[in-house]
């Protein structure tokens, strides 16, 4: 019999069900929330358990009094909304002009769409600051900022040079057998841009040679080592230009 909850990540893995039912105390909830985004198994389980819980919620449906709706709607018309969670700021280096868009790309949904894309030549190479600085100097360089729960990343892309760089710090370490994957978001699908693993301090500076000429944004997910043809793991960021 399991008298004591196991310590460490092993124990956290087994908290997904209790987490999805809000059956953790505040401290456990916080530890689990810190762990789950970088753990594909947990993120996936939480998603499934939440859908299951929604069925439990549905089963006890009781319509509220009709007055409630008018109260809610009149409050709503006076209330502000938050900005989307992953707004992307785009800076065109050549024009020194910043455009702001609030579009949020749903990477997983896009993955449903059949991909009709040329194979990207994925020749990742360890980036150095010179490589990135060079890329930034390209006339058509576009810088996207990806903001998400796991920190902030910048992606520099030049279609002319067929290069993409990803720069960031404070990233969570990946678990064994997993890697971060950068994706081009395209009309009607996604295409792989490169794989990267942050160093011990959580920093990444990588430049990839790519053969993609089209993108409407970038996304980052966690994938098994070696990458995937389309996103399969937790999507950490997704933003359109």
């Amino acid at each position: 019999m399991n008298l004591l909850p196991p310590k460490g990540p092993e124990g956290l893995h087994h908290l997904a069900a209790a987490y999805a039912l809000d059956a953790l105390n505040d401290e456990e909830r916080r530890s689990f929330e810190a762990h789950a985004p970088s753990c594909e198994t947990c993120s996936h389980e939480v998603e499934e358990f939440r859908e299951t819980a929604a069925i439990l919620a549905d089963a006890v449906s009781v319509a509220p009094r009709s007055e409630l709706k008018s109260r809610v709607m009149s409050e709503v018309s006076r209330s502000r909304q938050l900005a989307p969670i992953v707004p992307s700021g785009v800076t065109s280096i050549a024009e020194q002009r910043t455009r702001r868009t609030g579009a949020v790309m749903m990477l997983a949904a896009a993955a449903v769409v059949v991909l009709v894309i040329g194979a990207a030549a994925l020749v990742g190479r360890s980036g150095d600051s010179d490589g990135i600085t060079d890329l930034l100097a390209a006339p058509d360089a576009v810088v996207s900022t990806l903001d998400g729960e796991a920190g902030s990343l910048k992606v520099v892309w030049s279609a002319e040079r067929d290069q993409v760089a990803v720069v960031g710090d404070g990233l969570a370490p990946t678990v064994a057998g997993k890697t971060y994957a950068l994706w081009f978001l395209q009309e009607g699908g996604v295409a792989p841009a490169g794989l990267f693993v942050p160093d011990e301090s959580g920093t990444v500076r990588a430049v990839f040679d790519v053969a993609e000429a089209e993108a409407v944004g970038f996304g980052v997910s966690i994938e098994p080592d070696g990458g995937s043809e389309q996103p399969t793991g937790s999507v950490l960021y997704a933003a359109e230009f």
Partner: peptide
């Protein structure tokens, strides 16, 4: 609502949560 992300599960699941 602007922060709803499909990749994190269904709308119903999100709202029930």
């Amino acid at each position: 609502a602007p922060r709803f992300q499909l990749d994190r599960g269904s709308a119903r699941g999100w709202i029930a949560t």
